[in-house]
Design a protein around this nucleic acid. Structure first.
Length: 491
DNA sequence: GTAGGCC
């Protein structure tokens, strides 16, 4: 256990400003973000300089984290001698004019969000160090690593130079869309490495080698392309794991991820690795810090992770049928009161079951899970993102990363539990509720509980995040739900 | 027949 020497742990504090933050990822709301004044922080410059203390190994400089509810803490550990200064503007980051144009004209960004301000200097300042970064759901992590990839690519060299691994095809596609938009004027080419639709499947051996400069994909396909020598990792300078805690978890994609990492470490010289996620439980955190060595680290206390802008409720239902009735009579009937809604279920079967039940009642929605053919998955996601469907039933396929600003209601039809164990899956819970309230917007979550076990799971979740949820007073009363939505700030 | 991602 040769403990890699760490810098001193420090705390960056920032007052959470009310509602209107000019967060950089607020792309969809160009109208508001253009009229929103620049970030109104009284202390805009986070003095990272004073915080990057050299290795001492002693606890004497350790600053304890505080739990004040209205402050968001990011715990940073810097490695090495580099001094980083938080970026108040994108100009400070030495980005190419083409990239800046993408940020302002295409993405309609104004200033970096908190995580961007802190992590971008760490990502973009040579020597390029590894980074493990945790930040709240919807706070703009995608921008951090997409910008990282775009600015590390040499546009003149037509070889893969940046690689991004994601847990689902939907997330890979979504990330590529962000990259295309942000990198529109850079001329940098990208490729999505996800399984082919069966209709236009090309055997791997008949495929030409990848010449695109950025490759974004899912682990299986990336691995396959690599071992078939169709994806060269020789010139890969930056390797990103989105939803990194899941990508490196024992019951996640650990083996695939490690193999990809090792292969790149062997073939390329000095590849920078970035790990991003909203969650890192203690087990994964310990593991990733060991695997991705000598890097900078940004972490958030789990008690600070619940989004204040998203109000969470418990709904006690007498039985499973009542849960369906809540969806039908309360959620759908109050459809005018919210924007879009994702209903999470535990299994593919219950996704289909719930979909059929609602369809029989004459309600319009779609249902997505891993057994649906890819073309249909893509179609449903597109329709939902285009606002053509209001309600999307999903397994945990869309629990992580799925970004749709109009979603302000999440329903946990089933609570998330760990695979192969009755334990709650705290991380998945947090990711699910993070689908509502993107970039500080208001949102509501209804947790439908019907057994003692559900109740217990919910209690454990509340305890884990030290966050008490409210109760909808009666599952049969419309006003109880209306009041809840009103309390959540949705009406 | 426990999510998801592969052959």
């Amino acid at each position: 256990m040769a403990d890699e020497s760490k810098g001193t742990e420090v705390v960056l504090k920032e007052k959470t400003t009310e509602v209107k933050r000019a967060w950089a990822d607020e792309a969809e709301e160009a109208e508001t973000s253009l009229t929103t004044p620049a970030v109104e922080s009284e202390d805009p410059k986070l003095e990272l300089d004073s915080l990057s203390i050299k290795d001492e190994g002693a606890d004497s400089n350790k600053i304890l984290l505080l739990d004040e509810p209205n402050e968001s803490d990011i715990q940073t550990v810097t490695s090495g001698d580099t001094v980083y200064t938080s970026a108040t503007t994108f100009e400070e980051l030495n980005l190419s004019p083409e990239l800046l144009r993408g940020l302002y004209a295409e993405m309609r960004f104004k200033v970096p969000s908190k995580i961007q301000a802190v992590s971008l200097p760490m990502i973009l300042t040579p020597p390029y160090k590894n980074l493990i970064a945790q930040a709240h759901n919807g706070s703009g992590k995608t921008t951090c690593f997409v910008l990282g990839m775009l600015s590390r690519v040499d546009p003149k060299r037509k070889v893969p130079q940046a690689l991004c691994i994601c847990p689902t095809r939907e997330l890979a596609i979504q990330n590529q869309e962000v990259l295309l938009k942000m990198g529109k004027h850079t001329g940098i080419s990208s490729m999505c490495a996800v399984p082919e639709d069966s209709s236009r499947y090309i055997p791997i051996m008949k495929r030409p080698p990848v010449t695109d400069q950025v490759v974004i994909g899912t682990p299986g396909t990336i691995k396959k392309w690599m071992s078939a020598k169709k994806l060269s990792t020789r010139d890969v300078k930056i390797l990103v794991f989105d939803e990194a805690d899941h990508m490196l978890a024992e019951d996640g994609f650990k083996d695939d991820s490690l193999r990809i990492m090792k292969d790149i470490e062997r073939n390329s010289s000095g590849c920078q690795i970035l790990l991003f996620s909203a969650t890192f439980n203690d087990t994964v955190k310990e593991f990733v810090s060991r695997v991705v060595k000598d890097g900078n680290q940004l972490f958030v206390k789990k008690e600070e992770l619940s989004l204040d802008s998203v109000k969470q409720y418990k709904v006690y239902c007498p039985d499973e049928l009542a849960k369906i009735q809540v969806i039908k009579d309360k959620i759908f009937e109050l459809g005018q009161k919210w924007g879009q809604c994702i209903i999470f279920v535990r299994t593919k079967n219950s996704a289909t079951m719930l979909y059929n039940a609602l369809e029989n009642y004459g309600y319009d929605c779609t249902s997505i899970h891993g057994n649906i053919e890819q073309a249909l998955r893509d179609k449903m996601v597109k329709e939902f993102k285009d606002g053509l469907t209001k309600v999307l039933i999903s397994t945990d396929l869309l629990a992580r990363g799925f970004d749709q600003a109009q979603v302000n209601l999440v329903v946990n039809f089933d609570l998330p539990v760990k695979y192969n164990s009755p334990e709650p899956d705290y991380e998945v819970y947090l990711h699910r509720i993070g689908r509502a309230g993107r970039f500080g917007r208001k949102g509501a979550v209804f947790n439908l509980l019907c057994t003692d076990k559900d109740e217990k799971i919910m209690q454990e979740i509340e305890k884990y995040f030290n966050h008490q949820t409210s109760t909808v007073r009666d599952w049969q009363i419309n006003e109880a739900f209306e009041d809840a939505l009103k309390d959540a700030g949705l009406l």
